[in-house]
Write a protein that binds this DNA or RNA. Structure first.
Length: 293
RNA sequence: GCCGAGGUAGCUCAGUCGGUAGAGCAACGGUCUGAAAAACCGUGUGUCGGCAGUUCGAUUCUGCCCCUCGGCA
């Protein structure tokens, strides 16, 4: 266990400057970036997920390159495909191997806290998502899911009483494995030799930056980008287009809200998102905070 | 200048037949194991425009003043 691969991790809320910091570190330490971002994985969703750099042809695939530095795990699936923390752990693991083999340092940078945690400590052995079962369970009201789960996994049922999504997952795990959530949990050890830096920015400054950036994103063609993806044939409610901003733009395009309201809601949801990210990273004990203002 | 409406939380407003006030949004705190840009849980932060009067007690009633928004000039 003492030959763990060395990686660096940069986290932080949206608009905190993670990519910029990651690029500087890559230059200094001969590194390459692995994006830990549940939205940048989607092809065609560029402006709205704050991708930087350009896609370059690289043998059989495309790789995003920012100022000469490769950034992996962006643009890997279509907007109607699903991606999960488990997918990320697998894909990032492979990229870490590749980058390390080249003699470079993998720099994992992104704002999806669960992905980072799952990568660093692993996910427990558990049944994967079962779409058919989920569809069946989703027909039932949350109240019924709760009652059903109460019989087989009361702890998870109580904990997620008002949370349909989590009730459903706990029930899914229980039905497929016969075990409770907790019975799957094991003690965790680090899977990498890592340093985890998290960027902290004062909310007042961060929120102002978010408001400005949302406006810029609209000006920079995010509406057209959404229309383009819809013209490709992807549905309005597909996974990729359900992200912040895209879902607001779709409401606007459907005539349900004004452009002004769309921008307000877009900014608001982004601020709320940044707050949740802050709460998550604050709670991580392996993190060293870099205070920026 | 006159007439009308109004001034209560960061914003929009409700309310108190007189006993120091509450909704939505914002903000703040938290949860988190294959949907995580998701899905949830919790918290009211206030010179009730100012001054005086009546009253045991005024944000509420009365008077004056200040401010805002309409309309008429």
């Amino acid at each position: 266990m003492n030959n763990l691969k060395t990686i660096l991790v940069i986290s932080g809320p949206t608009a905190s400057g993670k990519t910029k910091l990651a690029l500087n570190i890559c230059r200094e330490k001969n590194g390459e970036i692995i994006s830990a971002d549940s939205r940048q994985v989607y092809k065609y969703l560029d402006t709205g997920t704050n991708k930087e750099g350009v896609l370059r042809h690289n043998g059989q695939s495309f790789v995003r390159v920012i100022d000469g530095i490769p950034q992996y795990l962006t643009d890997i699936i279509n907007p109607d495909q699903k991606y999960s923390a488990a997918d990320f752990v697998r894909d990032a693991g492979l990229k870490i191997e590749e980058i390390t083999k080249k003699g470079k340092i993998p720099v994992v940078a992104g704002g999806t806290g669960l992905y980072i945690k799952a990568l660093l400590y692993g996910l427990d052995e558990m049944p994967q998502a079962d779409e058919k079962l989920r569809l069946k369970l989703a027909e039932k009201p949350a109240e019924e899911l709760y009652k059903q789960l109460l019989k087989s996994d009361p702890e998870a049922a109580e904990k997620n009483k008002n949370n349909p999504q989590r009730l459903l997952r706990a029930l899914e795990v229980n039905i497929l494995s016969g075990k409770t959530m907790k019975e799957h949990f094991k003690d965790k050890t680090q899977r990498y030799a890592f340093k985890h830096y998290s960027i902290a920015v004062d909310n007042e400054i961060l929120y102002k930056r978010i408001n400005e950036r949302c406006e810029e994103m609209i000006e920079n063609g995010m509406i057209e980008e959404t229309e383009k993806v819809l013209h490709f044939g992807f549905k309005q409610d597909c996974a990729g287009l359900s992200g912040i901003g895209y879902r607001h733009i779709i409401k606007y395009l459907n005539g349900e809200i004004s452009k002004e309201t769309m921008l307000e809601e877009f900014s608001k949801d982004t601020r709320h998102y940044a707050k949740r990210q802050n709460t998550w990273f604050k709670a991580q004990s392996d993190t060293e905070f870099l205070k920026f203002s």
